[in-house]
């Protein structure tokens, strides 16, 4: 196993007197898709706020490529909940936002993003406003805005939470295909068990607040997933097991984080 890109070492965070995160340790390998799955309000988004330096903590250490996060120079491209597209910017100018913030001239940024529109299923919609696009297209535009920043790692914060079930399933399938091609190092926060199982190499299960890692699960189902009956059955078994853990947290699991692997039997 190569050196991890991102390591979280016994992170804790308190909001005033309220403990939000407790003793969180995680690692993400290069090219790995890792999900954080937990109940609503368990502090998943707080974790992302720590990573994007919106908040800081004194408890524990975060390192990227071996360097403390503060010295790592914003290694993350962040995709927030819902799409956060600017309604007053055309799609092309929404996707160049990160590059513009980095100081790139708008015309140059447009040239760099334009060739990617076809791959993201947005060709022909460059000059439309976000309100003219469907929910799925808006999410693809938001993801394009995220990846075009060319950062070492993606942070996806419940990116499909606001979509209807059918669109969401389509988007998950599409994202898996995109990930298979590009092998982004990515961390996904979600409370959708199926989504996590469908997309991830590994899943960290969080307890309700204060969030602790109650389990770490390797998913080594073959990709693309969910296309044949045999993997569907195994995925369903993993989903059921995860739900069982999340709905009836076993007190023995808290504290330590035993790894249980779902290797091919």
């Amino acid at each position: 196993m190569s050196a991890p890109r991102l390591t979280l070492d016994q992170i804790g965070y308190r909001y005033g007197d309220l403990p939000v995160l407790e003793n969180i340790s995680m690692a993400v390998q290069p090219g790995e898709f890792v999900s954080i799955l937990g109940p609503s309000g368990s502090g998943k988004s707080t974790l992302f706020r720590l990573l994007t330096c919106a908040i800081t903590t004194d408890i524990g250490a975060i390192a990227f490529d071996g360097k403390p996060l503060a010295e790592a120079g914003r290694p993350f491209a962040f995709m927030p909940q819902r799409d956060a597209l600017m309604p007053w910017r055309k799609i092309i100018d929404n996707t160049t936002l990160g590059l513009e913030v980095q100081g790139m001239r708008r015309a140059v940024a447009r040239e760099r993003v334009a060739p990617l529109f076809a791959e993201f299923g947005l060709a022909g919609f460059e000059q439309n406003y976000p309100a003219e696009l469907s929910g799925g297209m808006r999410q693809r535009a938001a993801l394009l805005r995220t990846v075009v920043q060319d950062k070492p790692m993606l942070l996806l914060d419940e990116p499909f939470g606001a979509l209807d079930a059918l669109t969401r399933a389509g988007m998950q399938r599409w994202l898996e295909g995109m990930w298979a091609q590009h092998r982004w190092t990515a961390m996904l926060v979600t409370h959708d068990v199926r989504e996590a199982v469908h997309l991830s190499d590994r899943i960290y299960l969080l307890s309700p607040r204060p969030a602790k890692v109650i389990r770490e699960i390797e998913i080594d189902l073959p990709r693309p997933r969910g296309r044949d009956a045999a993997t569907q059955v195994r995925a369903a078994a993993i989903e059921a097991d995860i739900l069982e853990t999340l709905l009836k947290p076993d007190p023995d699991h808290s504290g330590s984080s035993p790894t249980r692997s779902f290797a091919a039997e």
């Binding site: 919106a54 914003r74 491209a77 962040f78 927030p80 600017m86 007053w88 990160g98 913030v101």
Partner: peptide, 29 residues
């Protein structure tokens, strides 16, 4: 201004004045 928009821009490393120019000012229209 949508908090998520500000969070997004902050994650991109936008300083306060850029946040104002890119998000807060257009949001006020």
């Amino acid at each position: 201004t949508e908090p998520e928009l500000e969070q997004l821009l902050a994650s991109m490393g936008a300083p306060r004045w850029k946040l104002f120019w890119l998000a807060r000012l257009p949001s006020s229209l």
